[in-house]
Amino acid sequence: MAKTQRKNNLRKATESGSRAILLLSAMISIIAVFLIIVFILGQALPTLKQVSLKEFFFSTTWYPTQDPPHYGVASFIVASFEVTLIALILAIPVSLSATIYLSQFAKNKLAKILRTSIELLAGIPSIIYGLFGLSAIVPFVRNVFGGNGMSLLSAGIILAIMILPTIINLSEVAVSNVSQDLINSSIAMGATKWQTISRIILPAAMSGIVSSIVLGLGRAIGETTAVLLVGGNAPVFAKKPIDMGRTLTMNIITDMAYATDTHRSALFMTGALLLLVILILNLCVVEISKRKRLEK
């Protein structure tokens, strides 16, 4: 009798003990996000003692070690969005076509090979993309479009390749979640396969596709190593896509190792700005997927 009681007690203890551990682990991610925001802001805010927010966001002059120093990141903000835009323009048509092919047409063996290679693409480290960009894309851009090849365009092309797997994988999930009944009804009504895809499947999967694109966008805007190798890294305002430029991430990584004082906190400020952009993007994804649920 006492034995079973003790057994029961022990079981309850293990159960609530493991629940406590699980809760703690779940809390860690919340705490981590919170701590990251607090510490980045804590290091970033001293910038404002030396630089006004207006200069920081709207000046294109970045000369942190000159006398007097200038800390304007406007050209980096524009460059970040520009490379991301180029990447999306190149990646969206390709990845949507690939998604449709994979979900609607590819059969067995070929589909398997395609999926494996897309997964492989996702697993390649960004430094490898950068080296590939330096040896292949930079000369390509130099020969075809002119300039020295190190450019926002090269960075955009590399990013386009890098975000393909993100968009394809997630939008394929969205497309394959479209109810088979809906597709069958469409075919039964006499719609061709192409009509079914463009008028039924894509609209039905739209919110999933859009959130996959926003996630790809987030990856593109946060990518550092690959764009650093091919973007030229010049702290100037790029007038054309074939000009050299520097994105927010490149700015942080270039100077971080050695920067001091205001220069250092200005880099943290750049990081805080990037964090803000990514947080907004993630909120967008949450909003979009909420809407998806409502539709159902």
């Binding site: 330096l134 040896s135 030229g232 890294n233 270039t254």
Partner: peptide, 20 residues
């Protein structure tokens, strides 16, 4: 200002080699 910026010695060498 409109210059390539390399962030370490090895980077300087590879950018010199890669840029005509």
């Amino acid at each position: 200002q409109n210059s390539i910026v390399a962030h370490e010695n090895g980077d300087v060498a590879s950018k010199i080699a890669a840029t005509p």
